[in-house]
Design a protein around this nucleic acid. Sequence first.
DNA 1: TACAACACGTGATCC
DNA 2: TGGATCACGTGTTGT
Lengths: 202, 202
Amino acid sequence: MGNHADKALIALRNHSEAERRRRERINAHLSTLRTLIPGTNKMDKAALLGEVINQVKELRRSVTEATNGTLVPTDIDEVKVEEHEDHLNDGTSFSIRASLCCDFKHEILSDLRQAVEALPLKAVRAEIATLGSRMLNVFVFSGEDGEGGQILVNSVREALRSVLDKFYASEEFSSRNAMASKRRRVSFFCPSDSSSSLGDIW
Amino acid sequence: MGNHADKALIALRNHSEAERRRRERINAHLSTLRTLIPGTNKMDKAALLGEVINQVKELRRSVTEATNGTLVPTDIDEVKVEEHEDHLNDGTSFSIRASLCCDFKHEILSDLRQAVEALPLKAVRAEIATLGSRMLNVFVFSGEDGEGGQILVNSVREALRSVLDKFYASEEFSSRNAMASKRRRVSFFCPSDSSSSLGDIW
DNA sequence: TACAACACGTGATCC
DNA sequence: TGGATCACGTGTTGT
């Protein structure tokens, strides 16, 4: 019968339809990119993508220069830890960026140092920025991929949190009153007050 | 002879080659986007573009929140004018963003007001931000497309420049000495000093 | 006429 | 095998 022929024909039609859907997905994304980036309305596909690339680079520039390259402690105590999956050459390497923002106390710094050195990771970068009575500590760790990613992230987070908690405990002991709110206002930005070298501090 | 056939064949080959080059241009851009955005290495074309869209949105968020939504006057006198081609629904509408940054003087404000009102455009938004002795004025004009775009941009630019020049002239008259450098340092950022409503000022 | 950009269907390849 | 993705050449249209 034409059974084989029917099968083949149906398969072929499915194929072309699938391909059509694929094109539609891609073009839809290109379309939203056009709406996202001004002036790309009547551009070539290639030109559009070129503009997209420029925009991404431009925005990256803007965001880093808006921060002025200077890390600024906020008025809110917090610890942030995130993994980065550095895929240099489709690679087997990752990095973890960890930060701790809190009041500036020398005892915290030594606790922090101990906690960081106790971690099964090498810190490839460390920065301390102070602003008034506040401090922001940033560490970048690197790993070789294979060691459990999220597990490491969690241990780093726990390490920083324990440092912060220890500080809270001692603080609560020394002055039990002014602890109502952990948040403090810091009014002004003082560039010369910000430091990025460690030797001076610990 | 096969002259016609030759021609046709060559044409066909040119065609396919041109198409190949086109694909290469597009894929090259997609490739650099992959290098630009982490984690997209083994993604689908469509998925890649999706990630690109997310990145653009994310970066836009970051840059606006890094500026804190607050316009800040710099220490450099300047006027900037740019066209924006608001293509809402593949549209016939554009907008012009114009800004003037300079020392804060009341006379400048009234001159500025006159200059802006004399323009053949309606201002849909206006903001004034002050910081110490400095001010940043931002205007957004809208037009219906069809009126000469770049010509309007130039006239807006000229209007703002004339305001600035007039100020320079009067300043030069009043104090001929301290004019060596137009640039002044403004050290600190004071949020409460920044205003976005006009009624209070003019 | 020739060139540029696009959408389409098809064969190849990889899970 | 079937489903998904890709590169390719071709038909079509606009300049």
